[in-house]
Every structure is written in structure tokens, then in C-alpha cells.
Design a protein around this nucleic acid. Structure first.
Lengths: 344, 344
DNA sequence: TTTTTTTACGCAATCGTTCCCGTTAATTAG
DNA sequence: CTAATTAACGGGAACGATTGCGTAAAAAAA
């Protein structure tokens, strides 16, 4: 079934004008007399004329839409970030096309190629946890395609990046646990391929050592799919809990890691914070409704989306190739609640 | 900055052929000799040629993308539904463009006009809670634009609809509370403009009366923005709780209503289920992690998204106008947990 | 060998818009 | 009153791809 819309040609024929005149009248060109403009404008309004964005795109070589690749939209952080992205994009007349990688490298490559075949003007991407090889992104970037990373950036690719101070966030979270009296603090980490994972581990380790505690290798366990796969989290926590000196507190380094950690504790009847305290990176908006309420490291997701989009649009709309790239590092917020209650 | 891609013309010039020959060679037309095909295909591969989807759209009057309007993607039900939508759309070569109404009528109208101006081939919509006047959707539908409703449908517009058996869901939830010994069951309802709200109230009331309880007007309180605005939920619950015979159980009729209900109880130190039992419509994937774990009426969100998309694509790809519309009603699932523990 | 058929390609229109050039008629300048 | 200017509009190419039609050369049939 087809949806026929009215074109400039229809107006031209109806009014006995040429398409060029109609086009100019609609764009309020000085070459058209006020009288003609009035006639055209009124008729266009009457028959509800809308310019065909596809024809415009073809002519201007711009689609006025941007692509977004995230792992999951059913994830508080990303859905909030997308809200930020949309708020800026729509206000500037851009469409947003969202793709999910579901943390799969293969899907990410497919999504990227799909979007990049010239239906989008630029790309916002937070790479999949599985991704180790970034050549698909690199080659696009090399060909001058505007790309902005947010949250999960690729170190080796030089373009705008909007990230958070993961190092400090993990440091603060860990130090908070230490100051609350916990001594054996473990780190439930995400994918080892992601720079955010490395930064968070760095902050975690630094806090441990700065505060005179012993850094224990086995206290850091990775989950390749960033908590998406429960079994991975289960395995990681089993490994920690099997240690002779098992942890008395955990820093969980991602949204899904945090919730699956809670799920694990619940299934094993491990009490929080009595048996193990917990603080997690999370943007869950009901973290305060859990019992115990959840201490979190919260990312400014909405702002990240906004800033990333502003940078991307600036890059898209700049006349010449951009070579100076910004690296925005936003602060994290720690919200202390019951799950990390100080030891008596 | 501009991203120049290679066109069929580039190939034609480089190979000393005409664009038609190249086009036919790429589409494997019988009119082209195997030798020429080989040359073209290899060269195209070498310079990484991708057909320009915008040019194709202009020619075929189809953009191969569908629009989705939901109130919020940061809502478990909708993000799961979108996953279902994407899974079908991508597998059939369609793009998905998502817009959020944030439960605002005004935004919905803007989003609709934006999407409809021929950049999309069809629309999946779950109307905003605020929307009372549906003429913007109606007029689009009248002009033959393919539209499929999911979850929140508009009764007066005759097109495909994918909904759930809200009546039965509310009936079952309410009856479950009754069978668990609760007697004064209230209904925290969503927007009075939505048909799902009416159906859920119908089911609720039917369960009350079928089971020989007294139906009390004041036990049903509406929230115009479906729980998005905490103050509305607070006001509704305040009204219920101020009653002399205040409720001993609540059926919350939407995702955000349910979570904000929990937030209210927590802030007022009302214990669940001891003071008030609770069962809510919710697709929250951590409902089991709350304490008490939350009894829910769960919607098959993913499947709804899939079915709605299949119906939409069928409508888009059908040669002639569709006049027989389907009304798919999916079953709801009740998951009983601690928040509606039977009274002793 | 001549005629017919087939093969393999090119030309040009089309989709909806914009925009660079004309071109006519009216206006102004000289 | 003639020449130069300008106002107001139309013609047509372009964006990238597809496709109906025309046509040269080669192959097959007569």
C-alpha cells in the first residue's frame, strides 16, 4: 500500500506556475513577488504540503538523522542517555536511529554497516563489551565519518569522547567501603576489553593500596558480557565466595552487574550488608526502593547523551574536517544508602 | 564536514561503462554478460560500493524505515516491546526510528507530524496518557498511512491492534488478592482517557462484584500521567489512605504506578504486605529482587512488539489498501510473590 | 548469403527538490 | 526616446539509482 503525498509539482500545476517559482515562494526568496508568495503559501497550507525529506536528503547529501549504537536500551543508563541524545537531536531537527548490539561484536558490525551506508550523518556509539577489534569503527572514522564515543570509548581512535571519571568513581566507591570498615573488598568487573573496566579497576586498586589494604588478584573477577549473562556473574561471584578469606564487600562495576549481584545474593541467602556490603555502578531509578536500599555510583547519563550529541552535531555541521577532538570527562556521583552501611 | 561515498557513476566512469550497465550488473540482470558482471562486481567490492538508500527511497517512494512512538523508553515494558519491534524490523531490512511522547499530547502530535512527513513507511504507536483527541492519528489513517497500535490503542480508529487482555489481567489480579483474604481492594489507575485503563477497571470491578464484595467508588483513583508524575500518585494514594475504611490491598495498573506506589509506601513507612498488599502491572525485570518481592501482572512485551511489527510490515508491503484489521489480544501472566502474601 | 533473432549494452526519464541560468516585461536612467 | 537595469518568473540540470526502450553487433536461422 502506498501513501501518496502532495509535491511541489502538484502545487505548480494547480497554480499554473513552475516548480522553481513554487520552491522559491515556499523558501521566501526575494525573487518572488509578495502576491505570488501569498497564493503559493496559502495553497500549500490548504492542501497540507510537506517537503519530502528524502528528496532533500538526496540533494543535500545529508539525511538529518544520526545513528546510535548501544548494547541495550533496556538498561537504565542507556535509556537515560538516549533521552539526552533525543532532547538535543530533535531540537536541532535531527532524527535518531537506535540500534542495539546486545553486547555482541557481530551485531555491532552489522549495525554499524547498516547505519553507515549513508543513511545517517553521524554516529554515537558505546561499544559492545565483546568487541576487541575496532577496525570497523576505525575505517569509518578514517574515511571522515563523524563519530562520537560516549561512556565506552575506544582509546586508539581519535575523536570526540564523552566519558565519566571512572577511575575516581571506583576509587571513591572503594574508599567509601573502606571508611565504612570493610577490609576485604572485591571488584565485580565488566568486560576486560573495555577501557572503562580498566579505569574502574585502576581506581579500585588505587583506593585499596592508598588505604593500606592488601590488593588481592582473586578479588577482581571479570564478566565478558558486562552482567548481561547471569551465569557469568554467578561464576564470578562463586569464585570470590569460595575463597578462604571471602570478601566482606563488593564494588560492582556496571548496571547489570549490580542487579545480577543482588540476584545472586538473594538466591544464596547472603544478607546485604551484614554478610557482604555492596555498592554498584547503577542508574536504576528504583535503587532507593530495594531493601536494603542500594548504594550506587551514578553516571550523569542524560547529560552525557546531550553533550555527545552536541559534539556530534557540531562535527557534522562544520565545514571542514575536525582535527581537534575533545575528551569530556564528567564527574560521577556517589549515593550512599543501606547496602553499604558502616560496620559497627 | 561531508562524507563522500562512491556512486554507481564513479564505477561507470572508471570502467568505461554506462550507469545502467553497472546498475544491472550489480543487480545480476540477465542482460549483462558474465564477463562484464565480474568486472563490475569486483571493482565495486574493491572500492567498497554501497547503494545509496536515500536515492533508492526517492525512487521507490519507500524509506524502509518505520516509526515508533511510545511514552518512554526508560520503561521496562516499552524497552522490551522495542526489542521485539527491532528484532522483526531489522530482519526484514527496516530501520526503526523511535520517538518519545513523555506522556505529553503536544509532543505526540509533534512527533507524529515529524515522522509522518514521508520519512517513514508506517507507524507503531502506543498513545500518550494525556491524549484525548485523536484527530492527528485519525487523519493520517484516513489518508491511507499504515498504522498499528500496540498496548494503548484507540478504540475509534479502525486498524490493526495488538493489545493484552487487560480485563482478565485485572480480574485475575484482583481475584488473587480476594482469594488471599484481602477485602478492601483499591485500584490505582492510569489515565482515564486510555482504553486500557477502562478495561482494567472493568476487570477489577467485575472481580470485586463476582466475589461478593462491595464496589467502592473511592477505591479507584486515577493518575493522568500514568504514574510518571510522582505527585499524582501521591495524591491518589493519600486520598485512598485517608478513607475511614482504608484499603488493605492495591492493584496498581501500570509500570510506573507500581514503582511509585512502592516509593509512597516506603516514604510513609507503610509495610507491604502487612499493612497493604500490592500487586501491580509491571515488566520490571527486578521485581523479584525487591523486598518484599513484587507480585506482578506481566505483559508479553517482546511478543507484542514482534506481532505489531509483523502486522505493520504486512500492511506496508501489501499491494492494495487493507480493510480487514486484526485485533490481537494476548494473555497476561500473573506472577505471585511476597507483596501479596495471603493473610493469615 | 541474407534475414531474423539474440546478446549486450547505452540513452533518457523518473522520483522531489534546489539552484544556476536564461528570458520577458516593466521600470529607471541617460 | 532609447538604453540599461531590475523585478519576476520559467527551463533544465543535478542528486543516485532504476528501468523501459532503442540499437549496434554478433549469432543463429533461412
Amino acid at each position: 500500500m502506498k501513501f501518496e503525498a502532495v509535491t511541489i509539482k502538484d502545487i505548480a500545476i494547480a497554480l499554473g506556475l513552475s516548480t522553481s517559482t513554487v520552491s522559491r515562494a515556499l523558501r521566501d526568496s526575494y525573487e518572488i513577488s509578495p502576491a505570488t508568495k501569498k497564493i503559493v503559501l496559502e495553497y500549500a497550507e490548504q492542501i497540507n504540503y510537506r517537503p519530502n525529506p528524502i528528496a532533500l536528503s538526496l540533494k543535500e547529501k545529508r539525511s538529518h538523522s544520526i545513528g546510535v549504537i548501544v548494547c541495550e536500551i533496556a538498561n537504565s543508563f542507556f535509556s537515560q542517555a538516549i533521552n539526552g541524545i533525543e532532547s538535543i537531536a530533535y531540537s536541532k531537527g535531527y532524527n535518531v536511529i537506535i540500534s542495539q548490539s546486545h553486547e555482541s561484536y557481530e551485531r555491532e558490525v552489522i549495525d554499524l554497516n547498516y547505519l553507515a551506508s549513508r543513511s545517517i550523518d553521524g554516529l554515537l556509539i558505546s561499544v559492545s563489551a565483546e568487541t576487541e577489534n575496532f577496525s570497523h569503527i576505525q575505517s569509518l572514522h578514517d574515511r571522515g565519518f563523524p563519530i562520537v564515543f560516549f561512556d565506552r570509548a575506544v582509546e586508539s581512535i581519535d575523536t570526540h569522547k564523552v566519558i565519566v571519571d571512572n577511575n575516581k568513581g571506583a576509587f571513591d566507591a572503594t574508599e567509601h567501603l573502606i571508611k565504612s570498615g570493610y577490609q576485604r573488598i572485591a571488584n565485580l568487573a565488566g568486560s576486560p576489553h573495555l577501557s572503562i573496566t580498566k579505569d574502574r579497576i585502576k581506581g579500585y586498586r588505587n583506593a585499596i593500596e592508598t588505604n593500606g589494604l592488601h590488593y588481592e588478584e582473586a578479588y577482581t573477577q571479570y564478566c565478558l558480557h558486562g552482567g548481561m549473562v547471569y551465569e557469568e556473574v554467578e561464576k564470578a561471584l562463586d569464585a570470590m565466595m569460595a575463597l578462604s578469606n571471602k570478601p566482606d564487600a563488593i564494588v560492582a562495576s556496571a548496571d547489570k552487574l549490580t542487579t545480577n549481584c543482588i540476584r545472586y545474593f538473594k538466591s544464596k541467602n547472603i544478607r546485604v550488608p551484614e554478610d557482604v556490603a555492596l555498592i554498584g555502578f547503577s542508574n536504576l531509578d528504583i535503587a532507593d526502593l530495594l531493601s536494603p536500599s542500594l548504594s550506587v555510583v551514578r553516571q550523569p547519563a542524560f547529560a552525557m547523551g546531550q553533550i555527545a550529541t552536541e559534539l556530534l552535531l557540531k562535527m557534522i555541521e562544520s565545514k571542514r574536517a575536525v582535527s581537534e577532538f575533545e575528551n569530556r570527562v564528567l564527574p560521577l556521583e556517589i549515593m550512599v544508602r543501606e547496602s553499604s552501611t558502616p560496620l559497627k
